[in-house]
Nucleic acid binder design. Structure first.
Length: 312
DNA sequence: AATGAGCGA
């Protein structure tokens, strides 16, 4: 239901005599309400003397004198006295006081800003990375002198720990590095034979990981539990601000993760939008791929696939 | 759209 209220131009322009109560006391409730509203909405403050502010004085006392109409429509004077917290120089420590006296610098030199304003100036700083590709290394490079050749000359002794070959490649480049590692690197005591380990159960002494116990699979192809760089999963379409901890959090539930990596643009320091996650177990990697490929993450749809082995 | 960094007997 609506209550229809009729206004006439005359009623709005009527001179308002505040001392008079409702000029039409017998009118309906709606009309009475209308008068009340008019009184509140009409700003009659221009009839009042202006607001005065005195102080704050040396004691921090500030007075504000205002004039208002009260509910009865009478003019009243309101004086508000407040104590303003003094700008306490004593509260500033020595160093802060010193800084106050500094010359303006940065962009503030050119700006006409108040002495107490703080300005933010931006300055581009090129980050210097340790060893930028193609600087130092090239300067000392002797043409036609490969690392292998140097090693033959006795400068560098390059002996592969995996296959024992001399002067040919580093351990990490060994063509056989993905074959089972030699036992000696894992056990610090002379190894008991597999037969004796099996016979004495766990025996005493050095821990023997399951993969090394008698009966464990030894061939490179069938051993899924060997820790290596192969169970590598490529993740693309990562949002700009996805970092390695985020990737770990996302992939960790599928099994032990040996490494997470997010490719960064070295120049801008921003993510290139892809990364890699390596799993201890191939099956876990496969489950992660199945579950997370096409998964919505940070309002992007992830692509999760097997990575092709890194070119070395 | 896209496949990673660095170390060293």
């Amino acid at each position: 239901m609506y209550s229809v209220v009729h206004f006439t131009a005359g009623s709005l322009n009527m001179p308002i005599d505040k001392s008079d109560p409702d000029p039409n006391p017998n009118q309906s409730k709606a009309s009475k309400f209308r008068w009340g509203e008019l009184e509140e909405d009409d700003n009659l403050d221009f009839l009042l003397p202006p607001k005065e502010v005195i102080g704050p004085d040396e004691n921090g006392i500030k007075k504000v004198i205002e004039y208002k109409f009260n509910d009865e429509g009478n003019k009243v004077k309101i004086t508000t006295t407040t104590r303003v917290r003094k700008l306490a120089k004593a509260r500033l420590n020595k160093r802060a006081l010193e800084r106050r006296n500094w010359e303006k610098f940065g962009d503030a030199v050119r700006e006409d800003v108040g002495s107490r304003l703080t300005m933010v100036s931006t300055e581009e700083i090129i980050l210097e990375r340790p060893r930028t590709p193609g600087t130092k290394a090239e300067e000392i490079k002797v043409p036609g002198d490969s690392l292998a050749q140097l090693s033959k000359g006795g400068a560098v002794l390059m002996v592969c720990r995996t296959c024992g070959k001399k002067g040919d490649h580093w351990t990490s480049k060994c063509p056989y590095k993905d074959l089972a590692a030699p036992v000696e690197t894992f056990v610090d005591k002379p190894v008991a034979s597999e037969a004796s380990v099996a016979a004495s159960g766990s025996g005493k002494g050095a821990y023997v990981p399951p993969s090394m116990r008698a009966g464990a699979e030894r061939t490179a192809g069938s051993d899924m539990r060997r820790r290596n760089d192969e169970n590598s999963v490529r993740v693309t379409n990562l949002s700009e601000d996805t970092r390695e901890p985020d990737l770990l959090e996302l992939f960790r539930p599928f099994g032990a993760v040996t490494r997470v990596y997010v490719a960064m643009d070295q120049k801008t320091g921003t993510s290139r939008g892809f990364g890699f996650v390596n799993f201890v177990n191939r099956e876990d990697a496969q489950r992660a791929i199945n579950k997370l490929n096409g998964y919505g993450y940070d309002n992007l749809i992830l692509r999760v696939e097997w990575a092709t082995p890194r070119a070395n």
